Simulated scan of single mutants.
Amino acid sequence: MAERPAMSDRTATFVDLVIAIILPPLGVFLKKEFWICLLLSFFGYLPGIIYAVWVIITN
């Protein structure tokens, strides 16, 4: 299976970040961190965004 080009990876990361800002749990849904992000989003929108962006950037 061929690797995706670097531009495609950056585009996917950008889309993930935009989704994480709009709806934090959805941004990390496929990254197995959904429940933590959902819980943080219930406590406040900003903690959910911060956690979602951190998960996307570090993975």
Score class of each variant (00 low, 15 high):
F34H: 13
L40T: 03
T11D: 07
K32T: 10
T11P: 00
E3V: 07
F34D: 06
I56Q: 04
C37T: 12
L46D: 04
P25S: 11
T13Q: 14
V53Y: 02
F42W: 14
V53N: 00
L39V: 12
Y45D: 09
K32R: 11
I19D: 09
F43Y: 15
T11V: 15
T58C: 07
G44T: 05
F42C: 12
P5R: 08
G27M: 02
M1R: 06
P5M: 06
Y51S: 07
R4V: 11
V15C: 12
W35E: 12
G44S: 13
M7V: 13
G48V: 01
E3F: 12
A20Y: 02
V28L: 04
I56C: 07
L40C: 13
G27Q: 02
K31E: 07
P47W: 03
W54G: 05
A20N: 03
T13N: 08
I57A: 10
F42L: 15
W35R: 09
A2R: 08
A52N: 03
C37E: 04
N59R: 11
L30E: 04
P24V: 04
P25M: 07
A2T: 07
L26Y: 11
V28G: 04
A2F: 05
A52V: 01
K32D: 15
F42D: 00
E33R: 12
A52M: 04
I36Y: 06
R4I: 10
I21D: 02
L40S: 10
M1N: 07
V53Q: 08
A52I: 01
G48L: 01
F42H: 11
Y51D: 08
I21H: 00
A6V: 09
I49N: 00
R4N: 08
R10D: 06
D9Y: 13
P47K: 02
P47Y: 06
V55K: 10
V53R: 01
K31C: 00
I22E: 09
W35D: 09
V15Q: 14
P5E: 08
F42K: 09
I57W: 15
L30Q: 07
I22T: 13
E33Q: 14
L30G: 15
I21C: 12
Y51W: 15
V53K: 01
L26F: 15
D9A: 13
A52L: 03
F29S: 09
F43V: 13
K31N: 06
P25Q: 09
I36H: 07
I49P: 00
P5Y: 02
I50K: 00
I50S: 05
K32Y: 08
A2W: 05
F43C: 14
P5G: 13
I49Q: 06
W35N: 07
R4S: 12
Y45V: 08
L40V: 04
A6C: 05
E3H: 08
V18E: 09
I57K: 13
L26K: 01
G27E: 05
T13G: 03
L40R: 01
T13W: 04
R4C: 04
G44D: 12
M7Y: 15
L38H: 04
G48N: 03
Y51K: 08
Y45R: 09
F34W: 14
M1P: 13
D9I: 11
K32C: 06
L17Q: 05
I49A: 07
A12N: 11
A52D: 06
I21F: 12
V28F: 06
W35V: 10
L46K: 02
R10I: 06
D16W: 01
G48Y: 00
L39S: 13
I50H: 02
A12L: 14
I57V: 15
V55H: 00
I49E: 02
